[in-house]
């Protein structure tokens, strides 16, 4: 038995395909990006090594910093607007029960299964100054309805709205699952004690949802940093670089501005940013969990002492 479970050839056969795929589709491109990041390649023909020039340029590149700022704004939008609404909706949904619960859960999640290609073009029409839905809604309520939603000043907010709207179902569903996992006897106890809905939410649901909130916040931060597809189709970073995001910017630099070397340098920095952000958020939440566990242990120890 033991011999069979440590057969090297079998292990190689089992892990081999996974490792090969990883090496070919993930590792090789990263190494190639690091290599091209040090060159002035245009994507075609010959090129020279330019050392750290691309990285020095990046430090002074305003568009890159706008991208980071936009990611930060998006993350804030997710956490401060999308998540609170998603959590309250999930909480209500859980207590609804029956067909209504099923129906609303389905409705809230539908935008999420629709292709970004459709979503981006649909919102282009919604923002259309001539016959767009949004301006028509403003007219419907008696306004003038001539807002240029994708114009310089407000384009970024319009983009954020689309992203927050499209991702809502996902965030809601995760909170919903978290709430479903809460022990129902706790709610019974609360209702026997005469707690109302609002009290129960803040007293029981919210504290018990901490781990789920952490998962959701982590995912929001990272997906805000990684955002590309919606922006690529909706505004392609414009007007100017007002709605630029990092992934879109590196793509543009490489394939539109023919600065393939520079695009790769941005790619390298982008990968580092994503890894660092993932590691930091995991660390922060882990440390917090440990501290809280210690606190709980202390409390229970004290109780035992009493």
């Amino acid at each position: 038995m033991k011999k069979m479970y440590s057969n090297k050839a079998v292990i190689a056969v089992l892990v081999g395909p996974g490792l090969l795929l990883f090496a070919f589709a993930v590792l090789a491109p990263i190494i190639l990006s690091i290599y091209y990041g040090f060159t002035n390649s245009t994507g075609m023909g010959s090129y020279d090594f330019v050392g750290m020039k691309n990285y020095k340029e990046l430090i002074h590149d305003e568009a890159f910093f706008i991208s980071i700022r936009n990611s930060a704004l998006l993350a804030l939008g997710f956490i401060c607007i999308q998540h609170p609404i998603a959590m309250v909706t999930a909480y209500i949904l859980d207590r609804l029960g029956g067909r209504a619960e099923h129906f609303f859960r389905c409705v809230f999640f539908i935008p999420n299964v629709i292709s970004v290609a459709v979503i981006a073009y649909l919102w282009k029409f919604i923002y259309n100054p001539d016959f767009g839905l949004l301006n028509n809604i403003i007219k419907f309520f008696g306004g003038e309805g001539k807002v240029n939603w994708l114009g310089q000043d407000i384009a970024i907010w319009s983009v954020l709205i689309v992203l927050i709207w499209h991702g809502f179902g996902w965030g809601m569903l995760i909170y919903y699952t978290g709430i479903k996992n809460i022990d129902p006897t706790l709610y019974e106890a609360a209702s026997i004690d005469g707690a109302g809905s609002v009290q129960t939410f803040f007293g029981i649901t919210l504290p018990l949802m901490k781990p789920v909130i952490q998962v959701n916040v982590t995912m929001a931060l990272i997906s805000a940093l990684k955002q590309m597809e919606t922006v690529y189709l909706l505004t392609n970073g414009g007007p100017g670089n007002a709605t630029q995001f990092t992934a879109n910017y590196l793509y543009q630099q490489a394939f539109r501005a023919f600065k393939y070397g520079y695009g790769n340098a941005i790619g390298v920095v982008f990968i580092i940013l994503c890894v660092v952000l993932t590691v930091i958020t995991n660390k922060v939440f882990e440390d917090r969990d440990l501290k809280e566990e210690k606190k709980l242990n202390k409390i229970s120890m004290r109780k035992e002492a009493i």
Binding site: A25, I30, A247, L250, C274
Partner: peptide, 9 residues
């Protein structure tokens, strides 16, 4: 690893 960083290489 962000998928879109691997597009160029």
């Amino acid at each position: 690893i962000p998928i879109h960083a691997t597009l160029l290489p």
